[in-house]
Design a protein around this nucleic acid. Structure first.
Lengths: 338, 338
DNA sequence: TTGTAAGCGTTATCAG
DNA sequence: CTGATAACGCTTACAA
């Protein structure tokens, strides 16, 4: 059986208090005592039981990361950075997937499921604004929203300027001389924040350029996977007057779009230019390489972990919003360099 | 403050024992009692504290999944399946990344770090055989090895037949008429099991076909990322007598390889055929689509979780080895159909 | 500086 | 079938 604090105390002929002190690195302990305890720990191969510690202190040292699906490259890359950043703050990370399931999302969000298991939650979901508004702000669990919601002052928030990012992407297409720019990624359900913001940016960029917004060029995508981009693009190309450029609301949609263009016997970027958003590694090796709006995932991850750590330490502090920078990366899919 | 079992007991005018019984769904409780308790729970919005439960029972309901890096698509896809499979068994999943760090890997492996935090560990690392052999089998933590180690009867093991998978890939290339088949992914450090097994399969397939094994065509790759495949391929193409086909030890290496071929002014598959291993989704949309050896990740995930659940329930049972099936998928990168 | 003891919220043993 | 009550292993007043 594993040795306990008590065993160590007995073995070292000291009180549990003293052992606890040296283990926690805390209070003042005389060198003699410390040495005695340390050798006892060594001899018994003692390891503190984190569960007991948690029950006592209320801290688990665990963060929950909630994402739609961990195998979406953007979220995988985000998870990687977050796990590393969390480790630097002494936290481990549990990954939960909502799988686009609203019920599951609400469950995770309202905390019905995570009592006492986590010190905080990093939430990067697809929640609708309605759901977010309905939420009980009474929730005692520190929560940081990741990505792309509207900041309403109730929750910490690490985001990008979605409207601007989308507008920048479209402006890039326009600057390359394209005139019929389609968009893929609008949600059938208008209540999601992210797609709506991106649509707003898309429409704004067109208007600024004096171009009309054609409803037929704005395509929905249920999820943000390659297959959805492929399907939507195929539909776009079948139009009587097809687009000469496509702005996809995610890089993964764009990868599907590119493949669809070639399968239709056309070329990227010559016939159709394609730009995405996220800057996943895949797009730096694909043929053509993918132009995109880069999101600085490491920054988002570091900032998110720093925020949640701060909030855990100081729960009663006003919510802050951090806006991560974004940059347009011109690559081959819009006629740029590799 | 959150209500406790005691609060519920008081409120319902029963003993904590009874409350615990109805909460755990256990023993026999009279309908009257059950009803009284249930309404009290409702009224107080009581939720059991999993930490306290864990301290008492020794079960955490948490599995650790240890992978090199979660953003490697194969591991991201594996993680997705494992998290879902674990949920069906009532487990949550904590993700740890070794980041190719041997020290970290050993730490996680010997359990120095995970005392009492997990009920079991799913380990899909890059450990060397030496490390594995050195391990204390005394470890009390249920452990299932994933992927590609040698089965030595001490640990449960869900694997594929690596030698055969590699041989099948190379045979596929040979059947397409290629005669100079290179391989990318051998490890500089010969002690890793996976690369070595794949190299064995590669050499065996060549010999069976009566071809010589040329050391110059066997390239190392430190990690299994796109950049490594790109670099190795560039070197191969600079050879006086370059290969007409490349077998990559991972799909990600293959994506880098394909890009390198085109950047060298050559074509896939016309000049150089490329095949990978893993069957990640990316390869089903890339240009050309990637021929690969499919690994049936959902099967591996289900089996792994089933094994660990079984071992947690019944620790003193002989270790078993499960071999997951694999299939060659011929796509465009070796001249196959889309 | 160190020792004693009271919980943290459960489950499980033992009576009744 | 239900009620007290003792752990589970740790942290931390409170004393000494």
């Amino acid at each position: 059986m594993a040795a306990t604090l008590r065993d160590v105390a007995e073995h070292a002929q000291v009180s549990v208090r003293t052992v606890s002190n040296v283990v926690s690195g805390y209070a003042h302990v005389s060198d003699r005592m410390r040495h005695r305890v340390l050798t006892a720990i060594e001899e018994l191969d003692y390891r503190p039981n984190p569960v007991a510690r948690t029950l006592r202190t209320g801290r688990t040292g665990v963060l929950a990361l909630v994402v739609p699906e961990i195998d979406l490259p953007y979220f995988a890359e985000l998870a990687r950075e977050i796990i590393n950043a969390a480790a630097e703050h002494g936290y481990r990370v549990m990954v939960d997937q909502t799988g686009h399931d609203h019920e599951r999302e609400r469950e995770l969000l309202t905390g019905a499921d995570r009592t006492m298991l986590f010190d905080g939650v990093l939430f990067s979901p697809l929640v609708t604004r309605a759901e977010l508004l309905e939420m009980q702000p009474s929730t005692t669990m520190p929560l940081v929203l990741l990505g792309e919601h509207e900041f309403d002052g109730r929750y910490d928030h690490v985001a990008i300027d979605n409207v601007q990012a989308a507008a920048d992407a479209v402006a890039h297409l326009l600057a390359r001389g394209r005139t019929r720019v389609a968009a893929i990624g609008a949600q059938p359900d208008e209540s999601y924040a992210t797609p709506q913001q991106r649509t707003t940016g898309y429409e704004r960029a067109l208007r600024v350029a004096g171009l009309a917004v054609e409803p037929a060029l704005l395509r929905p995508a249920a999820h943000y996977r390659r297959a959805d981009g492929y399907r939507a693009t195929t539909e776009l190309l079948a139009l009587a007057d097809p687009p000469d450029a496509i702005f996809c609301y995610s890089d993964l949609l764009a990868m599907g779009a590119i493949r669809a263009v070639f399968d239709a016997g056309l070329r990227v970027p010559e016939d159709v230019a394609v730009i995405g958003i996220d800057d996943i590694e895949e797009g730096r090796y694909s043929r053509p390489t993918l132009s995109t709006v880069s999101l600085d995932t490491p920054y988002i991850a570091r900032e998110a972990v720093a925020r949640i750590a701060a909030r855990i330490g100081e729960p009663d502090t006003p919510a802050v919003e951090v806006t991560a920078p974004h940059t347009v990366r011109a690559r081959e899919s819009t006629g740029g360099a590799r």
